[in-house]
Computed example of a mutant assay.
Amino acid sequence: MYLDTSRDDADTAKVVEPRWHAARETLAEAGCDPLTVHALEDAVLDHPSRPGRHGLALFATAGEVVLRRTLGTPPIKDICAYEPLPHVMPMIAQLARETEPDTPITDRVDDGLTEVVTHLSRGQVDTLLLIDDPSSTERLWIGPDPLQLSDDPEVLNAAGVRHPPLVRADAAMMRALTAADASIALVAAGEHLRGGVGARLRFAEVRR
């Protein structure tokens, strides 16, 4: 969940509570369990208040908030998502914008979602290059292993994964990056990357 916690006076409740109530309804409609909703509510309403413009990123599961991160600026919009994988891309993109410029593409990279996902599943990616597109609806199928991801469910079926869940593509790729000890760099929207994604490869022995 991403929430605008900006306030102009000392009465935080008047500002934040209505935003939280809207978020709570969205989470409930998405099927989020009551214990997790309650944990998020405590984390939002008990968060130390301060004046000015800022935001809050929260990640929770099974009745527990596992990460609470204050954002230096409010999120572009309040976001609530209840899915098998955490929706971390808005936080990563915002923190990157606050600390470093977009990365120019100065060398050859492999691009296109299918190609990049194939490299990710083999542990070959050194750096994922991504154009941050909040409107993207791309999704991938995943297995229990972080490197099990594909745009074709039959690929995972052949690997013994039955009924793989369909998740946000950026969430699946971020999980794979973490497992492969790889990095991510955001690139400007004007850069040409097929599907908005590319990869610099290790060109080393593939991890097994």
Rank of each mutant, 00 (worst) to 15 (best):
V65F: 03
D111V: 05
E100P: 06
V117C: 09
A172T: 03
D181H: 13
P144C: 09
P104V: 09
H119G: 07
P153L: 06
T127M: 07
G63W: 03
R108S: 08
D145T: 02
A169I: 01
L95Q: 13
G63A: 05
A171R: 03
V155Q: 12
A62Q: 11
A172Q: 01
T73I: 02
R69P: 04
L177Q: 10
E100Q: 14
Q124H: 14
T61H: 11
T106M: 08
E138D: 10
A62K: 08
V125M: 12
T106W: 07
I131K: 15
W141S: 07
A199T: 09
I79A: 13
L120C: 14
L95W: 13
E100G: 06
M89D: 10
H119F: 15
I92S: 06
N157T: 09
E115Y: 05
L186Q: 06
A182R: 01
L113V: 15
V197A: 07
L58W: 11
A176L: 11
I131L: 06
D170A: 01
R194K: 12
E154P: 04
V187G: 09
N157H: 14
A93C: 05
P165E: 06
V125C: 14
T118C: 08
P90A: 04
G123Q: 12
P153G: 14
R108V: 07
G196F: 12
V88G: 04
L120S: 12
D151I: 09
T118A: 08
Q148K: 10
E154Q: 10
Q148P: 02
M89E: 02
D102K: 08
V88Q: 10
L147W: 10
P101W: 11
G112P: 08
P90K: 01
L140N: 10
T106E: 15
D78P: 05
R168N: 11
P86L: 00
G143K: 07
G143E: 10
D107F: 04
R175I: 05
S183Q: 12
D181F: 02
Q148H: 11
M91K: 05
P146V: 02
A159V: 04
L113I: 15
D111R: 05
R69G: 04
H119I: 07
H192M: 14
A172W: 00
T137Q: 13
A62V: 07
L56C: 04
P164S: 04
D111L: 06
G72I: 00
H119D: 11
R194D: 14
I105E: 01
D132S: 09
Q148W: 04
A171L: 11
A169P: 00
G72Y: 08
T70S: 14
Q94A: 04
S150K: 09
A169Q: 00
D107E: 15
P75L: 11
E98R: 12
L71I: 00
D133I: 02
D181K: 10
G160T: 08
D181P: 02
G63S: 08
G190N: 10
G190P: 06
T137D: 07
G196D: 12
A188M: 14
A60K: 01
D107H: 14
A182E: 06
L58M: 05
R69F: 07
H119A: 15
D145C: 00
